[in-house]
């Protein structure tokens, strides 16, 4: 049953209306995500990918079109979002942050404790569970954020550039950790990023976006075997080819938008 559809987006549009200059953030977005699939939305900043994710997360209403997220098991929440680094709540300890979703949906006490403890250990925050976010590093905060989402046990995970603010080493470590936790649960993931490397490492499928208005222009299937490691993905020549291909594509999308200011950007690959 892994081929059934989990997320279905149809002609989705969002306009931020202002009196003089309305912004067409996304236009006519269509895509589907299968159950258990890891999909990355890849695009330059300002292409509306965060807007799209926020609509799916229930934080924003679309202006047009529709979307559907199939809620299979009613005992589990449908979706949880992993926010950027600032998303951990400063007045709660690491432990309280991780348990937040479970507490909000009034899960049984022992289940809350069990799942919270499990994911605290899983992401290596067990010894730091009594600390406040201000006392831990950015990488640890993001671990807490990931643990919070997985502990909540949703059917779909929505991730909004969760590693964008981290330093490179931490980013690699967390990407691999995310993969290993995900492989254990096989949840459906929609992951937003502007990093080509990140998309290649993580996803089963990449949806490429262009900006202003944001729309999906291409799809790429990444059929590398799992479990994946950064080193093996990096050293795979096919992935190098894919990188260049995506990069060329994004470059067009970005420079096309710079209208007139785009000279000199075109043939430069690295």
């Amino acid at each position: 049953m892994s081929s059934d559809i989990k997320i279905r987006v149809h002609q989705l549009s969002k306009i931020f209306f202002r009196k003089n200059s309305s912004v067409h953030a996304i236009r006519d977005i269509n895509f589907e995500v299968k159950n258990g699939e890891f999909v990355c939305l890849l695009g330059p900043s300002g292409c509306g990918k965060t807007t799209l994710l926020r609509i799916l997360a229930g934080l924003e209403k679309p202006s047009g079109g529709s979307y559907e997220m199939i809620h299979g098991d009613r005992n589990k929440p449908l979706q949880s979002m992993i926010f950027q680094e600032k998303g951990v709540i400063p007045w709660m300890t690491v432990e309280e942050n991780v348990a937040f979703g479970l507490r909000m949906r009034h899960a049984p006490k022992n289940e809350t404790k069990e799942r919270t403890d499990y994911y605290l250990k899983k992401v290596g925050l067990w010894e730091f569970r009594k600390l406040y976010p201000s006392e831990i590093s950015g990488g640890m905060k993001q671990r807490a954020s990931i643990a919070r989402a997985f502990a909540n046990d949703p059917e779909i995970l929505l991730m909004d550039e969760p590693f964008a603010a981290l330093d490179e080493q931490n980013k690699y470590i967390l990407q691999e950790e995310l993969l290993s936790i995900w492989e254990e649960t096989k949840k459906t993931v929609l992951f937003i990023t502007h990093s080509i490397d990140e998309a290649l490492l993580l996803s089963d499928r990449i949806l490429l976006m262009s900006a202003q208005p944001g729309t999906i222009v291409r799809e790429k299937i990444i059929d590398l075997p799992r479990p994946r490691k950064i080193a093996s993905v990096r050293s795979n020549p096919k992935m190098g080819q894919e990188f260049v291909d995506i990069w060329n594509h994004l470059q067009e999308a970005v420079s096309g938008n710079l209208r007139g200011a785009s000279t000199g950007l075109s043939n430069q690959v690295y």
Binding site: K86, G87, R105
Partner: peptide
Amino acid sequence: DPIFVDVAKNYGAKSKD
């Protein structure tokens, strides 16, 4: 920070919570 409002909303916090 509005992000905490989003977090609360996304994780299903009721108004009392």
